[in-house]
Amino acid sequence: MNIRILTTVFYVGTLRPASGTWGSAAAVALGLLIHGLGGFPLLALATVAVTALGFWSVARDMATREASDTDPSEIVIDEVAGQWLALLAPSLGFWMAGLDSWNFPWPGWVGAFVLFRLFDIWKPWLVGRADRMGGTVGVMLDDLIAGLFAGIGVFLAAGLYHGVIMA
């Protein structure tokens, strides 16, 4: 298989403008499908798998590029890994609540999407440090940290809403 098919997630990364947002949107759609098919456990397994595949494929793709091209915008497999990491927070909550796996209420996935894009674009603190690392690790790690921050944000927002606002 062509490495570019993997790193661009079947060429979603070539869509313009905002290829990272297109990659994240595709990741949400796929993540919802995966959650529907197998709930949190399947989404967690898929997240681990796409992260490993991302490190492997990005390393091969980056080896063919000029050194100055440190984070090509068309590579969006990192967005998929980070976005799925963000989706794990609401997925776990819904799974623990015993919701049907096809029931993934919109505030969870919208919150994960919006917060992930915010952290991925803004690149605060550890996200920015990882991005500046460059290479395969920098390409993948900044999105994984952004996904972790987004997941924590969704978790905190849900706790605030359900614990304070709905109390």
Rank of each mutant, 00 (worst) to 15 (best):
W122P: 00
R132L: 13
L43S: 03
S91D: 13
P105V: 10
L144C: 12
S101F: 13
W95D: 09
W22D: 08
A112V: 12
V110E: 02
L6W: 14
N2H: 13
D131P: 04
V114G: 10
G135H: 06
S91M: 09
A26N: 08
A27W: 11
G20M: 07
G93P: 00
F119M: 02
F10N: 04
G38F: 04
D78S: 05
W56G: 04
F94K: 00
T64R: 15
L45M: 14
F104Y: 15
G128L: 03
W109G: 06
S101C: 04
G23Q: 03
Q83K: 03
F40V: 09
F116S: 08
G38E: 08
L30H: 01
I121S: 07
H35K: 07
M62C: 06
I77W: 01
G54A: 03
F155N: 06
G135W: 00
D143W: 03
V164E: 04
V139M: 11
R65W: 12
R132I: 05
G138K: 10
V48K: 01
V76M: 08
H162M: 13
L160Y: 14
W109Q: 09
A52S: 09
M133S: 14
V76N: 02
T64Y: 01
F55Q: 03
P17Y: 12
F55K: 02
I34W: 12
M133I: 15
W109A: 04
A18Q: 07
F104P: 02
L92W: 15
A86G: 11
K123G: 00
D143Q: 02
I165W: 13
G159Y: 02
H35R: 07
G151V: 03
F55H: 10
L45W: 14
G98T: 04
V114Q: 10
G31Q: 12
L32N: 01
W102G: 06
A46T: 10
A25K: 04
G111D: 05
P90K: 10
A81L: 13
L53T: 11
V127N: 10
R16K: 15
T47D: 06
L37A: 14
W102C: 08
V48I: 14
M166W: 12
W125S: 13
G151P: 05
L45C: 09
G38W: 06
G82L: 07
F40I: 07
V127H: 09
F116M: 06
